[in-house]
Nucleic acid binder design. Sequence first.
DNA 1: GGCCACCCGTGACATTTGTCCCGGGCCCGG
DNA 2: CCGGGCCCGGGACAAATGTCACGGGTGGCC
Lengths: 201, 201
Amino acid sequence: MIKLLLAEDQGMMRGALALLLGLEEDIEIVAQVGDGDEIVPKALETRPDVALLDIELPGRSGLDAAADLRARMPHCQVLILTTFGRPGYLRRAMEAGAAGFLVKDGPVEDLAAAIRRVLAGERVIDPALAAAALSAGPNPLTQRERDVLAAAVDGATVADIASKVHLSPATVRNYLSAAIGKTQTRNRMEAVRAARQNGWL
Amino acid sequence: MIKLLLAEDQGMMRGALALLLGLEEDIEIVAQVGDGDEIVPKALETRPDVALLDIELPGRSGLDAAADLRARMPHCQVLILTTFGRPGYLRRAMEAGAAGFLVKDGPVEDLAAAIRRVLAGERVIDPALAAAALSAGPNPLTQRERDVLAAAVDGATVADIASKVHLSPATVRNYLSAAIGKTQTRNRMEAVRAARQNGWL
DNA sequence: GGCCACCCGTGACATTTGTCCCGGGCCCGG
DNA sequence: CCGGGCCCGGGACAAATGTCACGGGTGGCC
């Protein structure tokens, strides 16, 4: 019996997957969570064999939780399930020690199979996605550039960003300019978009 | 037997819902589509009793398709299932003749129940959402303002927008200014965000 | 007909944004 | 110790953006 932890914020999706996977003969859902902060505690409590994690969650990101989980429960395999096949996400998932990476397109049937393969020690990754991740190269943005860019979502002005990140407005503009350059874009919005697109956050 | 059409772009979600609803004794899935443009043709072909539609789809929006469907197949009830409970979405769904409006949070169990209630002639709407929709008031944006704002997503410059909408750059700026004023925001990005948030697109 | 809302455009103006240059500090690897 | 990278700031400048006031055109409604 494979003990599974399921982390997914969308209630309907979570419920549907739980019901579905519960139908499999050899799978038992031992925990369901809708918040990133609950992943590790619940895992420590229920000792699952596989953790199926969404990335975008309230609280901690599924990627952060994955790294933690691998460190604290090495026997537990992590399988990332996400809406967006961003190259940077895949890269970060691998760095966090995930054993598999699935996107929410693609058929449900793959899911149970992926869980079994992951538990058997295999790696499960969409080949096309892997290629994209490699061709995209690593994240060119520096830590501060990421911070500033992240603070620039939803149209904050330079002053807003500066106070959010505790920097001088002049510095913020410099970082923004650098980020715009590195993302090969023409302005803040495009830079933010490109960075999110690639999973560079 | 309730004949159901299912329109949802995310493969895993669509598959899971289909399997799940297929388990219900009195429900039969007669069509599954992942593209907004296929909704009406498939419906005309398979004559479902209820259409379960996502809003954000490739091709036509589920809301557009809903209006069309109601006009061409009045006997077929429309149930909107969406990720975002935007007030404007609910309003537009009602105007399009939808009988119900569900968000993808909330338990799966509600789904089958909602389908039956809709078919029985009831209206199914989250009360909190209905209140939000009423308190938010109707869409204050004019047609052109919507066009310009929609063209302004992902950081297009004024020139880009102007050529996209076939207007003078000066005019575009005026519309943007008007939209910014009506949305009570401070710049393009915030205006876009606010408009999307409220379902004003 | 007059009112009103929306359409489209112009010109002028202050502000913001993006760029490039400069300074200094810190820390790590050769 | 001397780069080289990242951190943090400043100044100056061109370009883009947001605002306002102003033209004129259309169509609906009372």
